[in-house]
Simulated assay, not measured.
Amino acid sequence: MTALSGPILLMLSLLFSLFSNPTSSVATDHKEVVCFVYHRFGDDRYPSTNISLADFEAHLQYLRDHDYQVLTFADAIDYLQSNQENRKTAVITIDDGYKSFHTNGLPLLEKYGYPATVFINTETVGGGDYMSWSELKDAGNRKIEIGNHTHSHAYFLNLPENSRYKTFDDEIRLSQKIIKEQLGLTPTTFAYPYGELDPKMEAIIRNAGFKAAAAQNSGVISAQSNLMRCPRFPMSESYAALDKFSSKARMNALVPKEETPTSFMMPEHHRPELTLQFVTGALQINQLQCFIQGGECQMTITEKEGETTLKLTSAGKLTRRRTLYTVTVPDKNGQWYWYSHLWIDPSVK
C-alpha cells in the first residue's frame, strides 16, 4: 500500500473533523433565527397591534408541527454564537407588557411549552392596560424573559441632540435599576421604543453591556447580524394569517457584505439611496424584488465576479416617519431570502 503524504493526511484529518463533528464552528456561520414581535393578544380595540388568540395559537401550532426550537431572545443569541447543531429556531417577543399578554397570550405559550421575551417600559408597569410587577414576576416564573424597553418609551429622536443621549442613557440605567429592585434580575436584552435609533443610541446600548437589542426592521437574524439592531417580523391582525406567518418563519437572511449607509436616519432630501453588496451564490438575481413603503423602488443591479451590488432609491420623496426598504430574492432551490433597512424621519410627528 502506498504511504499517504503529509498534505493528504492533513486534508483527510480536516475532513474527518468536519463531518464527525456537526457542532463545529464551520456550521456556526450559517445559523439563523427568525424573530417575531407581538403586542396585544385578543384585544380587538387596537387592531394595528393586536393578534387574535386563534391566529396566535395557529402560529404556535405551526412552530410545533414543523419542529422549530423556540427560545427566548437571550437564549437565541447564545445559540447563534455557540457550537450547537443548526436547527430551525424561532423567537417570540412581546413589546410593552400589556395585560392581555398575561391574561391571554401566556396561557397559550404554556400550552405549547414555549418561552418568550417581554420588553417592558418601567414607567407604565401597573398602570392602565399594563401588567403589574406581580404579574411580571409570575410571567418570569413561567419561562418568560424580561427585557428592557427604556423607562418612558419616549420618542428619543425628537429630543435635541444636546440632551438626547444623556436622557437615553439615564433611562436605561434607571429602568435596569427598577427591574432589579422589583424582579431581582438584570435584563441582558433590549428593544428600542418604536424601533427607532441612531448610531450614538446604538453605541450606548452596546456600551451598557446588553448582549443584543431588537429593532423593528423586518428580516432574519443571522450569525453575521449586527446584534445591536436585530430584525423582527411584526405580527398583528394585518400580518397574522397563517400563510403570511409561515412564509416569514421559512425565510432566510440576505446578509450583505457591505451596506451603505448603515445609519437608519433619513437624509434631508428624503430620497435616501441604499447600496448593498452580497455574494451571489445560488441566488436568482433576475427574480430579486424591492419594496418601499409608500413609494416606488428604483433599482440598479450590477453583477461581477460572483458578487451582486444593489443600489436602491425611492422614485419620490418619502413622507412617513418610518419607511422600510425591503429586498427579497429566491435561490435556485426555491428558498427565499429577506433584507430590510429602516429609514427614520423624526420631523414627522
Rank of each mutant, 00 (worst) to 15 (best):
I221V: 15
L183Q: 12
R322V: 01
A215M: 03
F168K: 07
K244H: 08
F41Y: 15
E57T: 01
V348Q: 14
S314M: 01
Q176N: 14
I144Q: 08
D198C: 02
H102Q: 06
D75A: 06
T186D: 09
Y46D: 12
M228L: 05
T93V: 04
T308V: 02
T28M: 15
H39Q: 12
E237I: 03
H149M: 00
F245L: 05
D95T: 02
A27K: 11
N158I: 03
R45P: 00
D243T: 13
Y239F: 09
L310M: 02
E171G: 00
S24E: 05
A76F: 04
S314K: 00
H149K: 02
T326C: 08
A54Y: 13
T189N: 07
S100D: 05
M11V: 12
M299D: 03
V279N: 12
E123P: 01
T280R: 12
I221F: 04
S263T: 15
D75P: 05
I92V: 05
Q293V: 06
T28W: 14
Q182L: 04
I179Q: 04
H153N: 06
A191D: 08
S218R: 15
D345P: 09
Y79P: 15
Y79G: 08
E303S: 15
D95K: 02
A76D: 09
T124A: 11
F264R: 11
F16K: 02
Y98H: 14
T309R: 12
L174V: 07
E303R: 13
F36K: 09
C290S: 10
P267S: 03
L342G: 10
N104K: 07
T308R: 06
E202P: 01
S13R: 13
F119A: 01
A240T: 09
S134H: 14
W336L: 07
K304T: 00
D29G: 05
K143F: 08
S52T: 15
E305Y: 05
S134I: 11
T117K: 02
L4I: 07
A253C: 10
H39E: 07
S52H: 10
Q298K: 11
N162L: 04
L312F: 00
T150R: 02
A215D: 03
G334P: 12
Q335T: 12
D170W: 01
D243F: 13
E32C: 03
L108M: 10
L10A: 10
Y98K: 10
L159C: 05
R250H: 10
T167C: 06
E307R: 11
N104P: 06
R232E: 04
V348G: 11
Q176V: 02
N148W: 00
G334S: 11
T103L: 09
N226A: 08
P187E: 14
C230R: 05
N50R: 13
G316R: 06
Y38S: 01
S24C: 14
Y98T: 08
P199V: 02
T122G: 05
S175N: 06
R164C: 00
T262P: 01
Y112G: 00
G281Y: 07
S175E: 07
V327N: 07
F278I: 02
I221N: 09
R250S: 14
A54G: 14
V255S: 10
L10D: 11
A223F: 14
Y38A: 07
A212V: 03
K200R: 09
